[in-house]
């Protein structure tokens, strides 16, 4: 097990290097720091001096890959590539273009994101499994047909409309919860409940349909026929046999998402004014703060790779046929 884990972690390293190189090329090679400075300063006729000042204050004034002015190690370390890209591996995100410490911001803002994303995911999965089991129980009837059609209708509505509609209905018409905002501690509840509910409703269509396919695939299998042949009731077959076996793909599908929950949802957080990582990213994008976007790209990839690792481990834990070598 530990040997397998170490191998998997080692395998993650070249991927992270790849991500790092890709973001570096995207941010510093496609456009030179001069171009970025000119675009940030806005004016077409920016003086060379202003560009240099901007670059200096944001740490983009050093050479991109090799610094010929320095001796020894300095040749490599005193460069944009080293300072902006290599340091990411140590989770040293540096300063944002507006001068804030990104690492500190991230550690502050990941918790509100989690407070929304985790309940949304867990409650959503529970609800979707229930609906999918119901539809699978009535398979090949009108309930099945219309259930699927309703799912398709639900998933054809853009997330934006779920949020706008939900805010309009619950906050503006019914005055049940505040439209947006956030508070710490127990007061956060009233701000969190609407985004969570909307998140769950928005996910019903996709989730239920997906789980229904998993259940139906499982129902076709031989052991289910055996269970029925020995005289078990349909409900017992579904709960005792099908559900348990179908949980393997469902659970492993969830595990890969778990680390990414910290990243939050861009849209939900920005609509509801939740100070999470999702809205942080959006602010970074809209202010054209390259340092934040770069940090989030790297963080997102790391979390995704952790998710893949967890998936492999969870496979081995729930499915005895899979062994980790």
């Amino acid at each position: 097990m530990s040997a397998y884990l170490i191998r998997r972690i080692l395998y993650a390293i070249p991927i992270l290097i790849g991500v790092n190189l890709l973001t570096f090329v995207l941010f510093f090679v496609v456009n030179s720091p001069d171009d970025i400075a000119r675009s940030q300063l806005g004016d077409r006729r920016v003086t060379e001096e202003a560009i240099q000042t901007w670059k200096k204050s944001h740490g983009y004034h050093k050479p991109v890959v090799l610094n010929d002015n320095e001796e020894g190690f300095g040749k490599i370390t005193q460069t944009i590539f080293f300072e902006k890209s290599i340091r990411l591996f140590l989770f040293d995100f540096g300063q944002s273009d507006s001068g804030r410490d990104i690492g500190h911001d991230i550690s502050q803002r990941m918790w509100p994101s989690l407070a929304i994303a985790l309940p949304t995911l867990l409650l959503g999965v529970l609800l979707n499994i229930t609906f999918a089991l119901l539809i699978a129980f009535f398979r090949a009837t009108y309930i099945d047909f219309w259930g699927v059609i309703i799912c398709v209708i639900l998933l054809s509505v853009s997330t934006l409309f779920y949020i706008i509609g939900g805010q309009f209905l619950f906050s503006k018409l019914l005055h049940l919860v505040p439209i947006s905002g956030y508070d710490t501690g127990i007061d956060a509840f009233k701000f969190l409940i609407l985004p969570v509910i909307i998140g769950i409703i928005g996910g019903i269509g996709t989730g239920t349909r997906w789980y229904r396919t998993i259940f139906l695939e499982e129902i076709e299998k031989d052991y289910v026929r055996t269970a029925r042949a020995k005289g078990l009731r349909e409900g017992r077959v579904l709960f005792r046999h099908v559900l348990r076996n179908a949980l393997i793909p469902i659970l492993t599908g969830i595990v890969v998402l778990l680390p990414l929950l910290f990243m939050g949802s861009l849209i939900t957080e920005s609509f509801f004014g939740i100070p999470g990582l999702g809205s942080y990213t959006i602010e970074g994008i809209q202010r054209q703060d390259f340092a934040i976007v770069r940090a989030m790209v790297f963080l997102g990839s790391v979390l995704y790779i952790v998710g893949l690792l967890l998936t492999d481990i969870s496979y081995a834990l729930v499915d005895p046929r899979v062994s980790l070598r």
Binding site: I15, G18, V19, L22, T23, L26, F27, V30, N31, D35, I36, R38, S39, R44, L260, M263, L266, T281, I285, Q288, F290, V293, R294, M296, V297, G300, S301, Y304, I305, L308
Partner: peptide, 27 residues
């Protein structure tokens, strides 16, 4: 795997930001 591990919204954001810089400079 490398491309997939970058959350797609962020990759798109990074690429579009860079395109914006390019368009600004080559208007």
């Amino acid at each position: 795997t490398t491309l997939n591990s970058i959350p797609s919204v962020l990759l798109i954001a990074a690429a579009i930001l860079m395109l914006q810089v390019y368009l600004d400079n080559h208007a």
